[in-house]
């Protein structure tokens, strides 16, 4: 079975305006829309395309999170994943612990390719893919904007600060994906019905012998400092005047 494993995180939807709790213990997540992390959606889309090219037999979506994460996994199944595993927990999970759970799943499921988003848009850690690759002692390529699979290898283009970098990695490998890799498909109603019948296994973190809990103590969460309100100038002459006065040109 040529299998691709995809990590799917449940996060606050990217359109939601983030508000910090008044007691500074976190951000408000009660009653806000939750979605699949957008980068993970791109990872899933890529897995489905690779399968549609006839280069894989099965796409497995895995997630760690509360019971409601089943919603995001059902969406993943409706997009086209074949089955899903939810490692259910209400606890915070350190990035290294997430990578350790994924490591255990990968060792059992033997995917030839693991695709993850380059970061989750809630905590913006950007660690899981690299850690998973390290724990499995396998190649990694982060921020991929192009992925080609052939002859037991992946040729990937990465978005780096200086432009684009191309690497060749032996499979199995762990890749993290960037925004420009693809545009995820929309889910159609019949697929949502079909997804209800697809297998979704529920496991616990303890099943994998990994500890729950955050990596670090949260001291506090603050809103970002706001900028001072600026001025509106009426024309170019006034703009140049202000810039010169500030010594900026």
């Amino acid at each position: 079975m040529r299998r691709i494993m995809v990590g799917v995180k449940r996060v606050v939807d990217y359109n939601v305006r983030i508000r910090v709790k008044p007691d500074n213990t976190g951000v408000i997540t009660e009653g806000v829309k939750m979605s699949i992390n957008p980068f993970d959606e791109i990872a899933l889309e890529q897995a489905l395309r690779i399968k549609e090219q006839g280069l894989a037999d099965e796409v497995l979506a895995v997630s760690i999170g509360p019971a409601d994460t089943q919603q995001q996994l059902r969406t993943a199944l409706a997009m086209g994943a074949d089955r899903a595993i939810l490692v259910q927990t209400d606890a915070a999970m350190a990035p290294l612990s997430v990578a350790k759970v994924f490591q255990k799943i990968a060792e059992a499921e033997q995917p030839f390719l693991t695709l993850l988003g380059k970061q989750a848009i809630d905590e913006d850690n950007g660690q899981t893919a690299q850690m998973l690759a390290a724990l499995l002692d396998r190649p990694q390529a982060t921020s991929c904007s192009k992925v080609d699979i052939a002859d037991g290898k992946a040729t990937v283009t990465r978005e780096v600060d200086s432009g684009l970098e191309t690497l060749e990695v032996d499979l199995p490998a762990v890749l993290s994906v960037d925004l420009r890799l693809n545009e995820p498909r929309y889910v159609k109603l019949p697929d949502i019905m079909k997804a209800k019948k697809k297998p979704l296994d529920i496991k616990s973190v303890a099943d994998y012998g990994v500890a729950e809990g955050a990596a670090f103590k949260t001291v506090k969460v603050d809103p970002p400092p706001s900028r001072q309100k600026g001025i509106i100038v009426k024309d170019v002459a006034e703009l140049v005047g202000v810039l010169k006065q500030k010594g900026l040109v």
Partner: peptide
């Protein structure tokens, strides 16, 4: 926390058995 550091440092962290403080 450039594309270089974002790529390599979490791999270092995992080898040292810790999570990373990002950014």
């Amino acid at each position: 926390s450039t594309t270089f550091g974002k790529d390599v440092m979490p791999r270092v962290a995992a080898l040292l058995g810790v999570s990373q403080v990002s950014d």
